[in-house]
């Protein structure tokens, strides 16, 4: 499964990069970084790692709650 996902991402990335008309290195770098991030993300979920759901401002809220009490 993991191999399949990575393979899929590689194929997508490769084909897309081939289709680009010009490849400035900044764009390619950002693209590859984001794509590998997405791939890692997919793999993590596929092997069932329970990622905690992020709580932006959650600490702030906890702190506020403490202050309230």
């Amino acid at each position: 499964m993991v191999i399949l996902i990575i393979f899929g991402y590689v194929v997508v990335g490769g084909v897309e990069l081939l289709l680009w008309k010009e490849r400035p290195w900044q764009k390619v770098l950002v693209y590859l970084l984001l794509l590998s991030a997405a791939a890692t993300f997919s793999v993590l979920l596929a092997i069932d790692v329970r990622l905690p759901v992020p709580e932006p401002l959650g600490t702030l809220r906890n702190w506020l709650q403490k202050l309230w009490q």
């Binding site: 997508v12 990335g13 693209y31 794509l35 991030a37 997405a38 993300f41 997919s42």
Partner: peptide, 14 residues
């Protein structure tokens, strides 16, 4: 446009 593919693909696991 070049950012679309990684972002869209990441909503699947997202």
């Amino acid at each position: 446009r070049f950012l679309v593919t990684p972002l869209v693909l990441s909503i699947i696991p997202g």
